[in-house]
């Protein structure tokens, strides 16, 4: 199956985006729409339990992805030659394009609603301020580096003669950034655990 899917990229590499890019983007969008819809459902049903579930699940999935990318995928990619890294980037970028921003946006939004409903959203509380500061760093990294890099990879792939070195460089930058995001997320979970217990 993997071999069959890899073949078209070889044939169309010099003519722009591979044929599977659109289907991977559609898949990413279909999955990426689920978290905000689930958040709308939780709020419409006024279910604190569901709101908590959406927050924990999206936050956990976001953290898990970053840990996996930063600790595991980064090692695998570093061991690959540039053409192989490009092949991974061609598939990884469209698949994560909508899912990751959606998970992060919903985890943060649901977290704020949850804190407000539980009466914990006190801006004088140093733990809430710490959580806010970490969220700002994570969002700045997402909007300022992750997303633009993802789009630049797309644009490079869409060129008649894509630059494999640039695609590899941008992909590795995102992978390294995922590792840094994982560190901040471990910190924010530490803050969340404190808020949940004390």
């Amino acid at each position: 199956m993997a071999v069959a899917r890899a073949a078209p990229s070889v044939q169309t590499a010099s003519t722009g985006l591979p044929p599977y890019t659109k289907s991977l983007l559609k898949w990413s969008f279909a999955i990426g729409v689920i978290p905000p819809v689930a958040l709308v459902a939780a709020l419409a049903l006024k279910s604190l339990y569901m709101l908590d579930y959406v927050h924990v699940l999206t936050g956990g999935a976001w953290t898990g992805f970053d840990l996996y990318t930063g600790l595991i995928l980064s090692r695998i990619l570093r061991s690959l030659e540039v053409p192989a890294r490009v092949e991974v980037a061609k598939r990884l970028t469209p698949t994560t394009f909508f899912i990751l921003p959606s998970l992060s946006a919903v985890a943060i939004t649901a977290g704020i609603y949850l804190a407000q409903k539980l009466g914990e959203f006190n801006l004088n509380d140093p733990w809430i301020l710490a959580a806010g500061a970490i969220v700002i760093i994570l969002v700045a990294q997402g909007f300022g580096i992750f997303l633009p890099n993802g789009v630049r990879i797309f644009l490079e792939l869409a060129k008649a003669k894509p630059d494999p070195a640039l695609i590899s460089k941008l992909t590795m930058r995102n992978v390294r950034l995922a590792a840094s995001q994982a560190v901040f997320q471990i910190l924010i979970i530490l803050v969340m655990a404190h808020l949940a217990v004390y």
Binding site: L17, T21, V33, P36, V37, F98, P101, L155
Partner: peptide, 24 residues
């Protein structure tokens, strides 16, 4: 250097992200 498809996919990508924010 860039095919029409590149511009088209950029517009769809933006639209998709905006839909997610609209739901939010």
């Amino acid at each position: 250097e860039l095919a029409d498809e590149g511009i088209r996919i950029l517009r769809w990508a933006l639209l998709g992200q905006l839909v997610i924010f609209l739901i939010l």
